[in-house]
């Protein structure tokens, strides 16, 4: 919501999340198959994955600070927030759930992240058009953004039940 007022910012966050998610999904799969299962410490799964995601996000932040300070300045707080993004953790968990190989775990991470980026960019384009609309006073700003997000998710309800 905060980042998606400009398409360039939304794309920036999307790319960062894709990078984080692909890396995290594969690393968590590796951790799961080579560490947790032999030690049958399955229950450590969630903590382990969060740790991995945090490491990867830190690494991305370093890279981004070094290479595109403007994007870093704009994303600001939202970059570390990826660690708390439940979708990232969910995908990491799913990647290890379905008994799929390392390669499919990576692809699942990548696919989920690309989906996330697409939705983010679509939403940013939508909000950029709303800037030009003559929205009544009480609905301006975040209100209209939340309503649009609501209708957008309404559209996704159509996929309910897709096997």
């Amino acid at each position: 919501m905060g980042v998606s007022n400009r398409i360039t910012n939304a794309l920036g966050l999307g790319v960062a999340t894709t990078f984080v998610l692909t890396l995290a999904a594969t690393l968590s799969h590796l951790l799961h198959t080579f560490v947790l299962i032999p030690l049958n410490a399955e229950f450590l799964r969630i903590i382990g994955f969060i740790f991995i995601i945090a490491v990867v996000v830190q690494f991305t932040e370093l890279v981004m600070r070094r290479h595109s300070p403007l994007l870093h300045q704009v994303l600001g707080l939202y970059l570390p927030l990826i660690t708390t993004n439940c979708a990232v953790l969910a995908v990491a968990l799913l990647a290890t759930q379905h008994k799929n190989t390392l390669f499919s775990a990576m692809w699942q991470g990548f696919g989920a992240a690309v989906g996330f980026t697409l939705v983010l960019v679509l939403f940013a384009a939508l909000r950029e058009r709303l800037d030009r609309a003559d929205i009544p006073k009480p609905f301006q700003g975040a209100a209209i953004a939340f309503i649009t997000a609501g209708i957008f998710s309404l559209a996704f309800m159509g996929f309910a039940g897709v096997t």
């Binding site: 398409i7 960019v121 679509l122 939403f123 384009a125 939508l126 950029e128 058009r129 209708i151 957008f152 309404l154 559209a155 996704f156 309800m157 159509g158 996929f159 309910a160 039940g161 897709v162 096997t163």
Partner: peptide, 24 residues
């Protein structure tokens, strides 16, 4: 949507989804 989702008519959701992508 029509064949896979559990709602009878997928057209409404398809239109809403594509309306969201019109600005892009």
């Amino acid at each position: 949507l029509r064949t896979h989702s559990n709602y009878p008519e997928g057209f409404a959701f398809a239109v809403l989804l594509m309306n969201a992508s019109v600005p892009l």
